[in-house]
Simulated assay, not measured.
Amino acid sequence: MTTILVTGGTGTLGRLVTERLREGGHEVRVLSRHSEPYAVDLVKGGAGLDAAVEGVEVIVHCASSPRGGDERAAGHLIAAARRAGVRHLVYISIVGVDRVPLGYYRTKLAVERLIEDSGLGWTVLRTTQFHDLVLQILQGLAKLPVLLLPAGLRDQPIEVSEVADRLAELALGGPAGRVADMGGPQVRTFPDLARAYLRASGRRRRLLNVRLPGKAFRAARDGGHLTPQRAVGKGTFEEFLAKPLG
């Protein structure tokens, strides 16, 4: 039995990773800001982090926030892992962090580099966007009478449970460095994804493509966040939409 710490263990991905590892008979500690007994704010660090990491062999680092602080959080986690003698740190990242100049992507890439230079055994997995995120975006856009879509943008959404399966597998293996990316089964245009969402939700909206300026959107239109050669996911967006949403 391996003792494993999952940061962000109450989130969309972390919760599933925790379930997979516990089903395998492993002791899993869940670290998040409000989850006792390991309620820790990674951005602040502190003694609670050392207590959470003590005796841990593997860390799966799922905690992340687009609002900022990921680099500081990673620094605190790495320092605690060194003190505790953790043998393996697994990190979930995003396809295209080195190609699409979004602020959040730059931060994810910086965290990757911190982990690579940490002196710890490490594994980094990059995936495309989860179905859940695409749904949230479309739900927000559909609040208007006209559904405004980024012109020329495509996506390759993946089922989060498949990513959880892969992360759990990586956590139980040895440090592997940067492993092969995971992409969803299909590269889809945003109008295509929007029509699938509208059919599933029973809504009617007119679609309007809007060309967005800037280097980040240009890189995205060029497919910097896609990995069609690694379309290893199985679940489609339509299959995700057909499931009851918790």
Rank of each mutant, 00 (worst) to 15 (best):
T2P: 10
G8S: 02
T10I: 04
T12S: 14
G24M: 01
G25T: 06
R29A: 03
L31Y: 01
S32M: 10
H34Q: 15
D41E: 15
D41H: 12
L42S: 12
G45I: 10
G48N: 01
E54M: 00
G55Q: 13
E57V: 08
E71K: 07
H76M: 04
I78V: 14
A80W: 00
G85H: 03
L89Y: 14
V97I: 13
A110I: 11
F130C: 10
D132Q: 15
L144T: 10
A151F: 01
D155W: 04
P157H: 04
P157L: 05
I158G: 04
G173V: 06
G174Y: 02
P175I: 11
A176T: 13
A176K: 12
V179L: 02
D181W: 14
M182H: 12
G184W: 07
G184Q: 14
V187L: 10
R188I: 15
R195S: 02
G202V: 09
G202D: 13
R203I: 05
R205A: 13
R206M: 14
N209G: 15
K215R: 09
R218L: 09
R218N: 09
R221S: 03
G223Y: 00
G223E: 03
H225W: 06
Q229I: 00
R230Q: 13
R230I: 01
T236H: 03
G246V: 13
